[in-house]
Amino acid sequence: METVDARGLSCPQPVILARKAIDAGQFPIEVLVESVTSRENVRRMAEKAGCKVAVAEMGDEFKLTLSK
């Protein structure tokens, strides 16, 4: 399991980091983000890249699990 901690980073950083992890191909990938904007941006990019995306809300943070 690859974990990308993008908490506190503003867009497009979370998307760039998640994209790098997808390109590296170590699935499943966990992406931690803080804002709904980052959640939606990472989700949109990952789905476009052919990943399945599951979102879990943890307090005021989000964990996205990307799998192929």
Binding site: R7, G8, L9, P12, Q13, I16, E34
Partner: peptide
């Protein structure tokens, strides 16, 4: 720059 790793660092709650 973004592609080359430019980043202003994390914000804190």
């Amino acid at each position: 720059f973004l592609k080359a790793g430019y980043n202003l660092g994390r914000a804190q709650k």
